[in-house]
Design a binder for these strands. Sequence first.
DNA 1: AGCAAGAATTGGAACGATCAAAGTCCGCCG
DNA 2: CGGCGGACTTTGATCGTTCCAATTCTTGCT
Lengths: 333, 333
Amino acid sequence: MAKSPTVDDVARVAGVSRQTVSNVLNTPSIVKDSTRQRVESAIADLGYRPHAAARMLRTRRSSTIGIHLDPYAGGVSGVVLDRFVHALTEHAGDRGMRMLVYAARTPEEELARLAELADRAEVDAVVITGTFYGDPRTGWLHRRGLPFVSFGRPWGDDDVGQPSHPWVDVDGAAGTRAATEHALSIAGPRVAFLGWPSGSGTGDDRERGWSEAMAAARTSGPRWTAVDDVAVARDAVTEALGGRQADAVVCASDSLAIGVHLAAVDAGIPRLPVVGFDNTPAVEALGISSVEQLPERVAAGTLELLMGPTGNVVAPHPSGLAHVLVTPRLVVR
Amino acid sequence: MAKSPTVDDVARVAGVSRQTVSNVLNTPSIVKDSTRQRVESAIADLGYRPHAAARMLRTRRSSTIGIHLDPYAGGVSGVVLDRFVHALTEHAGDRGMRMLVYAARTPEEELARLAELADRAEVDAVVITGTFYGDPRTGWLHRRGLPFVSFGRPWGDDDVGQPSHPWVDVDGAAGTRAATEHALSIAGPRVAFLGWPSGSGTGDDRERGWSEAMAAARTSGPRWTAVDDVAVARDAVTEALGGRQADAVVCASDSLAIGVHLAAVDAGIPRLPVVGFDNTPAVEALGISSVEQLPERVAAGTLELLMGPTGNVVAPHPSGLAHVLVTPRLVVR
DNA sequence: AGCAAGAATTGGAACGATCAAAGTCCGCCG
DNA sequence: CGGCGGACTTTGATCGTTCCAATTCTTGCT
């Protein structure tokens, strides 16, 4: 394993100076064509690649974006975040960025990790997920001056008009609206909604889509509630389904949808239209319709906010776009 | 956002030299107690943290481990790898290491990424997943001198006795053996196995556990095959289940298990014992038993191979342990 | 007190890249 | 022929840390 070549080695081979090699790499336009070609072939011959640490040290840029990985909580819906991370990694790679993942079990620990990453200059920016009302991370990041984008809007503020920070999110209401319209079109008018106990921004947003679609269709249906667990959801709707109180059910998540599906099978109505949210492998396997969040689009939006439409460095002040709201897609099964 | 403090700042405040501050951080034992305390409080006062890039440059160590993120393929079982990555991130953090994720769509692209990460000295080691017979990555990494561990054994060689490289894996045969014994104990003697088309090391290993357990119990049952897809599996076993050809079914994956479960419901035997493999959220939701891979243990084993039992730097020659084989745990539902 | 050996600490150099500013080359005009 | 300007290239300094070798301080012993 020979020592890897440096700019000096390339310069010697090409018969130019260090800086010219650097220019070929970073500012090719100012180098004369003939010189540039000579340098490029020297680079190719030696298999030269700039040493990341040296460049980071000098430029004070790490070309790295940090993102938290939740402790794996189990449950059906954890998958969505993982898909987002995958997509982000691909897009970041295309823009010459790296993704660094870090673990934290609590918000406090996450702040500690963020502080460390920032102080040690390991990341140029971070992406935070699962924002909630009164989230301490956003203010901290803002004070710290570390560029960031959140996947999840800053609930409680004027998100769209005057957001406190750049964010990307999925339009939950649009998703459940489409789901509800679909249910109305293939089943009866009594489309129920099974949501989470109110208070979570995401859950309320998804419920809104259902109620708006129902109002627009001048009909109504029952609204049920359960925490995000298959068994709980199943129990919660068993009685109502036995009484044939709904023609279809739109749910705030795939876990809930699976619970409803199982209860429907028990109640002898296995064909009851049920729509979930997240389009996880579990509902795919069961043939249940769901709302697909399009994590790829979310990832693309995230990087656009951080780096501009085509940039390859983190913009000091995230671009004019203050937010990106992705319209999800209903997957009918 | 003030400029962050450097060793020199700390040295000035503590009234010592640069090098002494460095010693306090890296070789505390050689610094006199009183001096060390003075330096430590200066560090705390200033909130000093070493600049990662500068340290990397000097020490030629990045304290970073790279790992590939597959393009999200859909399907039930992708989750296992994600859980592994999560666990690895946690354990690595505890040992003062970072995890860098990279994307690649093909093995060739993965080699290109690995070359880049190695040449630019961005990682000290990598973890590769999903090894297969004739995998080009292992030889390349070996030649390149980049330390690595694979999740998945080097199929085809003498894995255990004289492995060509350090690896960690889950003992698939032990998992299906436990599953089969459980099935025999709660159902009849005709325990079937639904596996993948033979040829994949992992699949053959899992099948072996079933056949060994059946032989030990002096019984036998049908062996079926399907590619890893819920619908395909369902179709593959529908007829056999209709004919009541098995008392229980052990499967090579959760996708297959779900397919079998659905076919069993269709056939009017919803209580047919089915055991999957991977313990994904999908089978949890459906109440199907499964073999849990224990990704946390796999992650711990991976780092142990790379860094030694308690080390916090990548060992130049991965430790005496040449492999770790994790015994999975049967989760009965 | 004098001295040697070990412990503790220090200043200079280096890691490999980019920035900033100072050259060099060349043709062209007065 | 000298000088000017623009295009291109080179030189020296720097980022923040750790390595290396040299220096100073302690301690114990004669």
